[in-house]
């Protein structure tokens, strides 16, 4: 399923200043290219700017400076540098999916309704699609429950199902396994990667847990410090270990 390089996401010449605990940090991303179906990881210590990068990729934070930002590659390119708020919402609902640390599920909806929400937003109310996704993730027995009745691992599976059900181009996952035990984390990661490959969805997972990534990700991005700036570069885990 892996297609031509850089046909899913392209980000170039990003620079964004942020202040954390009174200290200025500069986030610099010279280039970031991802293909459809790639399962990528952004790794770095706490406070290095992983989540800021995710905000920018998720169209919820406007960077100070950005050279280029597009999805869809050369075939179906969509420039994301200057979208209106309404269009940002449209892109978020159609082309992006999110998996948050504790799922980010709406507590007043059932599991089924939570999973169906992106479909309904995109006018694709297909219950079979919801049930299929639930079966793949092993949560078909939980569909009519409220999120509060689920375990942490089940919640994350529901979140993955919601993020992928409408087959977005990009899924952004912010520490999706941070709140579950190690075994469950591995299971979730595997299911997540499998589905990403299956649906051709590019996944960017932010994590600080390098053990989860070993031999399981297609690309790894790491932060290195260059004169008070956090610069994102393509790395191998070994390179990161040396940092």
């Amino acid at each position: 399923m892996i297609s031509k390089k850089g046909d899913a996401l392209h980000l170039g010449q990003l620079m964004h200043t942020r202040i954390q605990a009174g200290v200025r940090f500069q986030l610099i991303v010279p280039q970031m290219d991802l293909d459809s179906g790639q399962f990528a990881a952004v790794v770095g210590p706490s406070g290095c700017g992983k989540s800021t990068l995710l905000d920018i990729l998720g169209l919820v934070l406007k960077p100070e400076k950005i050279g280029s930002f597009s999805i869809g590659g050369k075939k179906d390119p969509m420039d994301l540098t200057c979208l209106s708020q309404a269009n940002q919402a449209t892109v978020r609902s159609r082309d992006l999916g999110y998996v948050l640390q504790t799922g980010g599920l709406l507590p007043f909806l059932s599991v089924r309704q939570n999973i169906a929400l992106p479909l309904r937003l995109n006018r694709q109310n297909d219950p079979i699609q919801v049930e299929t996704m639930a079966r793949i993730l092993g949560i078909e027995g939980q569909l009519d429950k409220r999120p509060s009745f689920l375990s942490g691992g089940q919640r994350q599976r529901v979140a993955i199902a919601r993020a992928l059900v409408h087959k977005p181009r990009i899924v952004l996952a912010d520490e999706p396994t941070a709140a579950v035990d190690e075994l469950t984390a591995v299971e979730i990661r595997d299911q997540f990667r499998e589905l990403s490959h299956k649906f051709g969805t590019t996944t960017i997972m932010v994590t600080h847990d390098r053990s989860l990534l070993r031999d399981q990700v297609d690309r790894v991005f790491g932060f290195k410090v260059v004169r008070k700036s956090q610069e994102l570069t393509t790395s191998t885990l070994e390179e990161l270990d040396r940092l």
Partner: peptide, 13 residues
Amino acid sequence: RDLGVMALIGFGR
């Protein structure tokens, strides 16, 4: 938080 999630998954203002 819930409204933020709704905004994140594509609900307009």
